[in-house]
């Protein structure tokens, strides 16, 4: 990994802690800068938040942040920031823009090599991911059948998404 990349990643880490989207946590290992583990809660306004009935039984204050917990991995390529970081969902998620396989890969918007510009920052990527959970990008879907579900049968889509949260995103 180049010294430019190291410097950039360290700097980005220092900067992003103030600016993280709510409900997101970055686990950072100084020994291995190239991989960030991210834990994010399903945004409250999305089907990826944990079912409210479940949360009701517990302390009411914790209800606000009872979202499903999603694990993500961000890998920085050797020639970062000239190439985009690679994002993978480690937790299965029912979403048009996340591949429904063991990789959970995402490839849209600024994450595409031809769209990525070197001044772009990881923090924007994290915001992008959170926004996508609230509002999927149907035109750029990787899972067309899920996108179809979202487009034509929203209730069914929400139900399946919530089922998956209960099953996989404890």
């Amino acid at each position: 990994m180049s010294s430019v990349a190291k410097k950039r990643i360290l700097k980005e880490y220092a900067e992003c802690s103030n600016d993280l989207p709510s409900g997101m946590k970055v686990i950072f290992d100084e020994a291995n800068l190239t991989k960030w583990d991210v834990v994010m809660e399903g945004p409250a306004e999305s089907p990826y938040a944990v079912c409210l009935e479940l949360a009701m039984c517990f302390d009411k204050r914790s209800l606000m942040h009872q979202g499903g917990h999603f694990k993500l991995e961000i890998n920085f390529p050797n020639d970062y920031p000239f190439k985009p970081p690679v994002v993978n969902f480690k937790t299965k998620v029912y979403h048009p823009n996340v591949s429904n396989d063991d990789k959970g890969s995402m490839c849209l918007g600024m994450l595409r090599p031809e769209e990525w510009k070197p001044p772009n920052k990881v923090i924007s990527v994290l915001h992008l991911i959170q926004n996508l959970l609230v509002e999927p990008n149907i035109d750029d879907a990787i899972e067309t059948s899920i996108a179809n579900d979202y487009k034509t049968n929203r209730a069914e889509f929400n139900k399946t998404a919530q089922d998956w949260v209960k099953r996989y995103a404890k």
Partner: peptide, 10 residues
Amino acid sequence: PGFVCDICCD
């Protein structure tokens, strides 16, 4: 003078 590169942060 005073320039910071937005890519390498130098």
